[in-house]
């Protein structure tokens, strides 16, 4: 059944009944706890990504690798990160892949990515939250394109660490990224509060109030100052 489904991928265009490839998802579930079967399945699926199967087929493969992907499938997915059509589905698989190699691949793809794809990669790094280096995201805060610095700010907020807060504190704030920078700093401050670091949180709220927050962010920072008293 799995072999048939893998064969079906070669002609899996939009419009083909998804039942043709259902066995791939079944194999994902059935191989849980069987390391050898998983490795083989991951390897087979990763190989499909370098072939000329239709986009819909690669979409299916990325969805399966989201569940079972390890460091082994990272190189095949990383090659898709600059592909306008497939970058998102590659991130779909990489964003939740626990391997540090997945982070390395995402970080390594930032610089050469087009604007839209760069925003996507930055957002996936932020969504991972932990195990992501702050420096590459801090660098995006200085990008001349305010949409990229906005993405960088939100990602740093999602990470929420002391280093992330420090980077955000020195961000150049403009009308385009103001909401994101404020939100990210508020996010970091909440993280400090959750870890009992009231003084650190209060300092971040103070910075938000100094940088000219939006009305909504000012209300939030005022609430935060009270919470960190």
């Amino acid at each position: 059944m799995l072999d048939q489904a893998l064969e079906s991928l070669k002609i899996y265009e939009w419009g083909v009944d998804p039942k043709a490839v259902k066995s791939i998802q079944d194999a994902v579930v059935a191989s849980h706890g069987d390391a050898a079967a998983r490795k083989k399945l991951e390897s087979t699926l990763a190989d499909v990504l370098s072939t000329d199967v239709p986009r819909a087929a690669k979409d299916i493969v990325c969805r399966a690798l989201k569940t079972i992907g390890t460091a082994h499938s990272v190189p095949a997915l990383a090659k898709l990160l600059h592909d306008e059509e497939l970058s998102h589905m590659a991130r779909h698989a990489l964003q939740t892949n626990d391997a540090p190699e997945a982070v390395k691949a995402l970080v390594g793809a930032i610089d050469k990515a087009s604007k839209k794809i760069k925003i996507g990669i930055i957002s996936s790094l932020g969504a991972r939250g932990t195990g992501v280096p702050v420096a590459p995201l801090a660098k995006t805060l200085t990008d001349k394109d305010a949409e990229i610095s906005t993405a960088g700010a939100l990602a740093l907020g999602a990470i929420g660490s002391t280093d992330a807060a420090k980077a955000l504190g020195s961000a150049k704030v403009n009308d385009t990224n103001r909401i994101a920078v404020c939100d990210a700093m508020l996010h970091c401050a909440e993280n400090m509060l959750a870890h009992g670091k009231k003084a650190d949180a209060k300092a971040i709220y103070g910075t938000v109030l100094k940088i000219g927050p939006t009305k909504a962010a000012k209300i939030a920072a005022d609430l935060g100052v009270k919470a960190s008293a």
Binding site: K66, S123, A127
Partner: peptide, 18 residues
């Protein structure tokens, strides 16, 4: 259950981010 944890989130298509 690391595998179950992967189901909690989905990557958002660029340029959407929250």
């Amino acid at each position: 259950d690391a595998e179950a944890n992967r189901l909690r989130n989905r990557a958002r298509r660029e340029p959407w981010q929250i």
